[in-house]
């Protein structure tokens, strides 16, 4: 029988007014959810107004940088008061309460303290060309994660206070590696089909750079590669993408 734990759902958003109301109301329907938090990255399209109407707790992220997903996630984790924090992308077209419940369940069952969501879709280009090869080399123990860059994440709130959040796109894989380094039990769970907007190509270059940087930085810290070799590899990856 899973332990009764409160869940805080955090949506990092920017200019997603058309999605936010539905996402918040769906998240509130999930079992155990005590609060839904919108961390806004400086929207100009009325996202905050929609979030407030949907009765979400709303804060504007502390640092308005692009890409600031990591800053938003850190603010969300700090703002949350539930035992479990679930991060979700707001622009999932088929958003369902089961996404939240599936992500939180392994933590409630005490099988994991950090959960990565994966979904029935081919992993993206940055995942296949950058994240997976680098993880295979430097963190082979994490190489079996199907979607290490997935933004669908759940974790014990307290464990998020023990790690530094990357500011940008490197945050998802950074958290995965950091939780593993801390010795926290991590797992991946299939949350089903996710109907989601793909990022445009120009964004992928930035993303690839930051994901590679997050992995290589940690590999250098852990003595798995020297700094000069890491920089050379980073250049090669960006050119490849």
């Amino acid at each position: 029988m899973p332990e009764k734990m409160d869940v805080s759902v955090v949506f990092p958003v920017k200019n997603r007014a058309s999605y936010v109301r539905k996402a918040v109301s769906v998240a509130y329907k999930a079992e155990g959810v005590k609060e839904v938090i919108i961390v806004d990255g400086g929207s100009t399209d009325g996202t905050i107004r929609e979030a407030l109407k949907a009765k979400a707790k709303t804060i504007i992220q502390s640092k308005l940088v692009y890409p600031g997903k990591g800053v938003a996630m850190r603010d969300g984790a700090y703002y949350a008061s539930g035992d479990i924090v679930v991060f979700l992308d707001v622009d999932i077209k088929n958003m369902a309460p089961s996404f939240v419940e599936k992500l939180a369940e392994p933590i409630m069952r005490k099988e994991a303290e950090f959960v990565k969501g994966c979904f029935e879709r081919e992993a993206g280009r940055v995942t296949e060309l950058v994240a997976k090869p680098l993880l295979k080399i430097f963190y082979p123990e994490l190489a079996n994660f199907r979607q290490p860059l997935s933004g669908e994440i759940a974790g014990l709130r307290k464990t998020f206070y023990e790690v530094e959040f990357e500011e940008g796109w490197g945050v998802d894989v950074g958290l995965l590696i950091d939780m593993h380094r801390l010795g926290r039990p991590v797992t991946e769970i299939d949350i089903g089909f996710k109907d989601h907007e793909m990022k445009p190509l120009p964004h992928l270059t930035d993303m690839a750079h930051q994901v590679a940087d997050a992995i290589l930085k940690r590999a250098v810290e852990d003595g798995r590669i020297d700094r000069r070799a890491a920089e050379a590899r980073l250049r090669a990856i960006v050119e490849r993408v």
């Binding site: 502390s62 969300g76 984790a77 700090y78 703002y79 008061s81």
Partner: peptide, 9 residues
């Protein structure tokens, strides 16, 4: 601190 979220709480 450098987080408005934690400062708010």
């Amino acid at each position: 601190s450098d987080s408005d979220a934690v400062n708010y709480r």
